[in-house]
Design a protein around this nucleic acid. Sequence first.
DNA 1: AATGAATGAGCCTTCATTCAT
DNA 2: AATGAATGAAGGCTCATTCAT
Lengths: 196, 196, 196, 196
Amino acid sequence: MARPSVEPQRRTALMNAAIKAIHERGSLEVTMSEIASHAGVSPALAHHYFGGKDQLIVATMRHLLSELRKTTVAELHKARSPRQRVSAVIAACFSPEQFEQETVTTWLTFYHYAQSSNAAARLLSVYFRRLNSNLAAALRELAPEQCAGEIAEGAAALIDGLYLRQGMKHAPPSADSAIRQVEIFIDNALAGFAST
Amino acid sequence: MARPSVEPQRRTALMNAAIKAIHERGSLEVTMSEIASHAGVSPALAHHYFGGKDQLIVATMRHLLSELRKTTVAELHKARSPRQRVSAVIAACFSPEQFEQETVTTWLTFYHYAQSSNAAARLLSVYFRRLNSNLAAALRELAPEQCAGEIAEGAAALIDGLYLRQGMKHAPPSADSAIRQVEIFIDNALAGFAST
Amino acid sequence: MARPSVEPQRRTALMNAAIKAIHERGSLEVTMSEIASHAGVSPALAHHYFGGKDQLIVATMRHLLSELRKTTVAELHKARSPRQRVSAVIAACFSPEQFEQETVTTWLTFYHYAQSSNAAARLLSVYFRRLNSNLAAALRELAPEQCAGEIAEGAAALIDGLYLRQGMKHAPPSADSAIRQVEIFIDNALAGFAST
Amino acid sequence: MARPSVEPQRRTALMNAAIKAIHERGSLEVTMSEIASHAGVSPALAHHYFGGKDQLIVATMRHLLSELRKTTVAELHKARSPRQRVSAVIAACFSPEQFEQETVTTWLTFYHYAQSSNAAARLLSVYFRRLNSNLAAALRELAPEQCAGEIAEGAAALIDGLYLRQGMKHAPPSADSAIRQVEIFIDNALAGFAST
DNA sequence: AATGAATGAGCCTTCATTCAT
DNA sequence: AATGAATGAAGGCTCATTCAT
């Protein structure tokens, strides 16, 4: 039986180490050494597996993005109505895995990174589109096309804003109140449309 | 008559140069040389006037913040009702001076910087409090204490989210749609409360 | 019967791989990985068989030198007169095996290497002496001791110079014209001595 | 009166330091630190003035080349006949400034460098052309076109070969014997032509 | 016999910062 | 008031080399 390759383990370990390191510094201004030592390996190994710092960062972004996606898919699977599907998307964004301090900080750092890295910008725009289309798809069954799009946009912006503010605080994240804010936003928006 | 010192001019020029440079790079990873040459002076002079890079950055933040404050005060001055005062605060946030591409980019960069700089964090928390209290003060005359606070928080988060998304795009900012989003949010929220 | 060891094959393969790699880079700044992958093996194996990069390089030099020697001996064997022996030595230097692009490049690289490696310098001085004594031995039968030595020295320098210039060009080597240059040199030198 | 800029001084000092350092190591595998400390400055300054290691190396080549050119021009100026012009070119190549140990080593190193650097290759080909045309121009007045070209090529190759061999030795250079070799080569070649 | 995994050491380069003028 | 000159400190990256399997 072939000896199982350690590469995937190392890669995952290094990406998690990157998240930790980024959270500690609060920015991408972390050294490869810092990241590597968080993973208990040498900086050279990080280069070996990722080819460079930028690539490690981007891989980590991709990693986080795919985690979010998995969570979203899982939540959507449980939903039984359009409105529940909206809630599912929101819940995924603020699920414990996504909304813990380290992840939020890293997330915001990536937002920032996207301003100078094309690769990062592309990844984020994928996320933007996905979030938007997930929300809009469900909302279109609850409001006319026009409104659905606008509500989705507002909700997405609100979610980002809540992340951002969460990232600023040094307090542990309170997912519940964040979720409530967005849910109320949706409810009010749908009600506002109906009463027109 | 004493020859007027050029110091204030230089300081302002350098802070504006910093904003430009930060916008170009999309991050604080700009060299002092870059900033200085944007202002047409030597890097050494920037040091002379500000004492260091961090201090120049923080001064620039303060500068931006005070601009926003002035605009807000001016807008509030024109308001004739509580609801108009809410709109005034919103309008100030998205006023042309504040919401042009360069400023938005810089703003986001500062958000990010606050995660690793205490001075920046302090400044931002001042902004947070002020925005929140401005909104809440007006809202308290339109909804009960409890609700007012929550609506203010939501509005603030939404504003930040809209800034953030604006900063990502490479398109020119569209203040109007942003304002509309927030205004509708407020309206819906107030309506939602009323119907309870 | 014992399975024949693969060691000699591997060693030869690695030395040829080194020649190829050196030619491609145009210098000794090739990585062990490059060399090893040219031979289709892992870098670790190259270490295993040679003990280190320097030793692989030196072994490759020795390899090339012994090839040249074989060719020279073969050519000398065919010669039937002193003058033909001179031509034999020259012909060997520019024989197809020796004077192909890859070999020339590698050869020059070794010249360069000799400036910082004692082992390389020793090997090269062996080559120098051998070339010189081969030429001088034949020439002594055509001119007095004194002259023979000087002509041999000149011829050797000329040969090196032609190699050097060949190595610079990116065109395929033209052995014929090189040989002609040296032969004419010899002829003229002998004629020059005679007319004294 | 304007303070005289130290830039030219530093640049020259650094190029000379590079020559020294290269001579010591016998190759371009010298660190910027080594070079800089030979010049008594920090490595950062070398970068400041040259932009990088490669550029410092190429500048040094250019420097050496222009020295050689100056010497050649000066020697040619003293020549009174075609044959003397040939001698002038040869003398320049082996003049004390050019043919001291350090310079020779550096020169050979550059030959080698040209195999992997386009900039270096371009510079060297300029030297080649110049040397060749200087020799050929003078020779054309002493022998027919055809021959002149071939003799010039041979002389150039011989000169390079003598440099190369000088660079190998650890003994001080003996310009005289080198010059004599080339002069005899020329004389014999011209005589050889005449007797045809 | 052979290699994947891992690392230590070292180099180029960048940049904020200082200082003499 | 202003700057050219210079540097120390630090980070990303490469690569020969080692070792357990």
